[in-house]
Measured scan of single mutants.
Amino acid sequence: MTEYKLVVVGAGGVGKSALTIQLIQNHFVDEYDPTIEDSYRKQVVIDGETCLLDILDTAGQEEYSAMRDQYMRTGEGFLCVFAINNTKSFEDIHHYREQIKRVKDSEDVPMVLVGNKCDLPSRTVDTKQAQDLARSYGIPFIETSAKTRQGVDDAFYTLVREIRKHKEKMSKDGKKKKKKSKTKCVIM
């Protein structure tokens, strides 16, 4: 069974824990209790493949930012979460993405942009803004509501699919490099 290491990042209060708990335990946590770091595991079937999701729910508070490099190193894919009623959390996505790329030393890291709290009427981040940002990053965008469960499975499952595509691409690139290195030079 394939294991996928997913990391949920975003500013404090955007609903990272609520999304994760909704996926794992099928219930909505409405009281806000700032996370330092929590880890969850769940076995699911995605596109006919049974897999184990190892999900790291991270601290959004700035005082825990020193811990970010460590979990970013171990993560295979990242859910970059903002709240649709919090423009600052949307603007912060850029910083999370840049930090992930720096730590992973790669421009090509599996990510999904997630606009959470889409059940709320007080939207300050337009869907088109988020779609445009995701398009500019070359990553999928999904709106979710941890409260109603809308888009929750889709967000995590899409990230797994992005990781699969990335692994497939990397193995193809690896095979191309191996083929090239088999060419021999004969000096007579």
Rank of each mutant, 00 (worst) to 15 (best):
T2F: 05
T2W: 04
Y4Q: 04
Y4S: 08
K5N: 15
V7S: 11
V8P: 02
V8Q: 13
V8C: 07
V9P: 10
V9T: 04
G10N: 03
G10H: 06
G10T: 02
G10L: 05
A11R: 08
G12R: 01
G12F: 06
V14K: 12
V14G: 09
G15R: 03
K16P: 05
K16G: 00
K16F: 04
S17L: 02
S17N: 00
S17I: 05
S17G: 00
S17Y: 03
S17K: 00
A18G: 05
L19W: 03
L19Y: 03
L19C: 12
I21K: 13
L23M: 06
I24D: 06
Q25L: 07
Q25R: 11
Q25H: 12
N26D: 03
N26E: 03
N26A: 11
N26H: 15
H27V: 07
H27W: 15
H27T: 07
H27Y: 14
H27Q: 11
F28N: 00
F28D: 00
F28T: 00
F28P: 00
V29C: 09
V29L: 10
D30K: 05
D30W: 07
Y32S: 01
Y32L: 01
D33R: 02
P34R: 00
P34K: 00
T35M: 00
T35Y: 01
T35C: 15
T35F: 00
I36K: 00
I36P: 00
I36L: 15
S39F: 05
Y40N: 00
R41Q: 04
R41T: 04
R41A: 04
K42A: 08
K42F: 04
K42R: 12
Q43T: 02
Q43M: 03
Q43V: 02
Q43G: 01
V44A: 08
V44C: 09
V45L: 05
V45F: 01
V45K: 04
V45I: 05
D47M: 04
D47C: 03
D47S: 05
G48C: 05
G48M: 08
E49K: 11
E49S: 12
E49M: 13
T50R: 02
T50Q: 02
T50I: 04
C51S: 07
L52K: 08
L53K: 03
L53S: 05
D54V: 01
L56I: 01
D57R: 00
D57N: 00
T58R: 01
A59M: 15
A59T: 15
A59E: 02
A59P: 05
G60T: 02
G60P: 01
G60C: 07
G60D: 08
G60F: 03
Q61R: 01
E62H: 08
E62C: 13
E63P: 04
E63A: 02
Y64Q: 06
Y64M: 15
S65Y: 06
S65M: 13
S65K: 02
A66I: 15
A66G: 09
M67G: 04
M67K: 09
M67S: 02
R68A: 15
R68V: 14
R68H: 15
R68L: 14
D69W: 01
D69V: 01
Q70K: 05
Y71T: 15
M72Q: 02
R73S: 08
R73W: 07
R73F: 11
T74D: 07
T74H: 15
G75F: 15
G75A: 07
G75V: 08
E76R: 03
E76T: 13
E76A: 05
G77M: 13
F78A: 01
F78D: 07
F78S: 02
F78H: 14
F78T: 01
L79F: 06
L79A: 09
L79D: 03
L79N: 04
C80N: 04
C80T: 03
V81Q: 12
V81D: 06
F82P: 03
A83P: 12
A83T: 13
A83Y: 02
I84N: 14
I84Q: 14
I84M: 14
I84V: 12
N85D: 13
N86M: 02
N86F: 02
N86S: 08
N86A: 07
T87G: 09
K88R: 11
F90V: 08
F90Y: 14
E91R: 13
I93F: 13
H95L: 07
Y96P: 03
Y96L: 15
E98M: 06
E98N: 11
E98L: 03
E98R: 09
Q99S: 07
I100M: 15
I100D: 03
K101S: 10
K101M: 12
V103S: 05
V103F: 04
V103I: 10
V103Y: 01
K104Q: 14
K104C: 15
K104I: 14
K104N: 14
K104A: 14
D105E: 09
D105R: 04
S106Q: 14
S106H: 10
E107P: 04
D108K: 09
V109H: 03
V109R: 04
V109N: 05
V109W: 12
P110R: 03
M111E: 03
M111Y: 02
V112T: 05
L113N: 01
L113T: 12
L113I: 13
V114I: 09
V114Q: 03
G115M: 11
G115V: 11
N116K: 03
K117H: 14
C118E: 13
C118Q: 07
L120A: 11
P121W: 12
S122Q: 13
T124Y: 11
T124S: 12
T124W: 11
V125N: 10
V125S: 09
D126L: 09
T127H: 09
T127R: 08
K128R: 10
K128M: 11
K128N: 09
K128S: 10
Q129I: 07
Q129M: 10
Q129K: 14
A130P: 12
Q131H: 08
Q131E: 11
Q131K: 10
D132W: 10
D132G: 10
D132A: 08
D132P: 13
A134C: 10
R135E: 12
S136L: 12
S136G: 11
Y137E: 05
G138I: 15
P140H: 04
P140L: 06
I142L: 09
T144K: 01
S145C: 04
S145P: 05
A146S: 01
A146Y: 02
Q150C: 11
Q150E: 04
Q150N: 09
G151K: 05
V152G: 06
V152W: 04
V152M: 10
D153W: 02
D153F: 03
D154K: 08
D154Y: 08
A155R: 04
F156Y: 14
F156V: 11
Y157P: 05
Y157V: 11
T158I: 14
L159P: 15
V160K: 13
V160H: 05
V160Q: 05
V160R: 08
E162Y: 08
E162V: 05
R164F: 12
K165S: 08
K165Q: 10
H166C: 07
H166P: 07
H166D: 11
K167L: 12
K167D: 10
K167W: 10
K169I: 11
K169G: 09
S171E: 13
K172L: 07
K172H: 07
K172E: 09
D173L: 13
D173A: 06
D173V: 04
G174C: 05
G174E: 15
K176Q: 07
K176V: 10
K177P: 15
K178P: 14
K179N: 04
S181L: 10
S181D: 15
S181A: 10
K182Y: 02
T183H: 03
K184R: 08
K184T: 09
V186W: 11
I187V: 13
I187T: 14
M188V: 09
M188R: 15
